[in-house]
Computed example of a mutant assay.
Amino acid sequence: MSQSTDDRPPLGVRVLTPDNRIGIYYGPHGHPESATHAVLRPVGGGIEWTAPYAELEVLAEISEYPRKADVNVLHVAWVEHISECYACLGGHECAIKDRLNKALMIGAQESA
């Protein structure tokens, strides 16, 4: 049975899986309408994995007002994301890249 798209977390939120891994939600694994698993990535970048939607716990959205200490982590995540995201590599719109850009821009302004 597929997970209702209304019950899925928003793109870019941090989630916790039952094995205590924290990842950023990148979207459904497989066809969007029938996917039962989510694609996740480590917060600082790295190899993606999947987990069942029913087992995810949403932790928090990526802050639009990051602390100075978080700006470096966001920058690493941004570099990793744009180097591996099919949408970004193809020059298409990407909600996660947009959120990371916004958070980095605000973080840079606060650091100045």
Results as ranks from 00 to 15, higher is better:
residue 13 V to E: 00
residue 41 R to H: 01
residue 106 I to A: 03
residue 104 L to V: 11
residue 39 V to E: 14
residue 23 G to L: 00
residue 44 G to C: 07
residue 29 H to R: 10
residue 75 H to V: 08
residue 60 A to S: 13
residue 52 P to A: 14
residue 34 S to K: 10
residue 60 A to M: 11
residue 10 P to C: 04
residue 111 S to T: 01
residue 91 G to H: 10
residue 72 N to S: 12
residue 46 G to N: 06
residue 3 Q to G: 13
residue 73 V to D: 10
residue 73 V to E: 09
residue 3 Q to K: 15
residue 61 E to G: 07
residue 53 Y to T: 11
residue 7 D to T: 14
residue 60 A to I: 15
residue 34 S to C: 11
residue 61 E to F: 10
residue 104 L to N: 08
residue 32 P to D: 14
residue 92 H to S: 07
residue 104 L to Y: 10
residue 49 W to G: 06
residue 30 G to S: 00
residue 28 P to L: 03
residue 44 G to L: 06
residue 18 P to K: 06
residue 54 A to S: 15
residue 81 H to F: 05
residue 89 L to K: 14
residue 27 G to M: 08
residue 47 I to E: 15
residue 6 D to N: 10
residue 54 A to D: 15
residue 55 E to F: 04
residue 96 I to T: 02
residue 45 G to T: 01
residue 89 L to G: 12
residue 25 Y to T: 01
residue 80 E to S: 06
residue 61 E to R: 06
residue 74 L to N: 05
residue 82 I to G: 05
residue 16 L to G: 01
residue 98 D to T: 13
residue 21 R to F: 01
residue 5 T to V: 12
residue 82 I to F: 12
residue 91 G to C: 09
residue 42 P to S: 01
residue 89 L to W: 14
residue 22 I to D: 04
residue 45 G to F: 03
residue 44 G to E: 06
residue 75 H to S: 05
residue 57 E to H: 03
residue 52 P to L: 15
residue 89 L to I: 14
residue 19 D to V: 08
residue 78 W to D: 09
residue 46 G to V: 05
residue 8 R to C: 10
residue 50 T to W: 04
residue 81 H to W: 06
residue 18 P to Y: 09
residue 49 W to L: 15
residue 6 D to H: 13
residue 100 L to P: 01
residue 13 V to I: 02
residue 109 Q to M: 08
residue 99 R to H: 06
residue 111 S to Y: 02
residue 18 P to G: 05
residue 33 E to L: 10
residue 99 R to A: 04
residue 20 N to L: 08
residue 78 W to V: 08
residue 17 T to W: 03
residue 10 P to H: 05
residue 97 K to G: 05
residue 14 R to L: 07
residue 99 R to E: 04
residue 82 I to L: 15
residue 69 A to Q: 04
residue 16 L to R: 02
residue 48 E to M: 12
residue 15 V to T: 01
residue 9 P to W: 02
residue 106 I to V: 06
residue 101 N to E: 12
residue 88 C to K: 06
residue 104 L to A: 09
residue 98 D to K: 09
residue 83 S to Q: 01
residue 7 D to W: 13
residue 94 C to D: 11
residue 20 N to Q: 08
residue 109 Q to C: 09
residue 61 E to W: 07
residue 3 Q to M: 14
residue 9 P to D: 03
residue 83 S to W: 00
residue 24 I to T: 05
residue 17 T to Q: 03
residue 40 L to Y: 02
residue 78 W to L: 12
residue 86 Y to L: 12
residue 51 A to V: 07
residue 83 S to P: 00
residue 48 E to C: 10
residue 48 E to P: 10
residue 56 L to E: 03
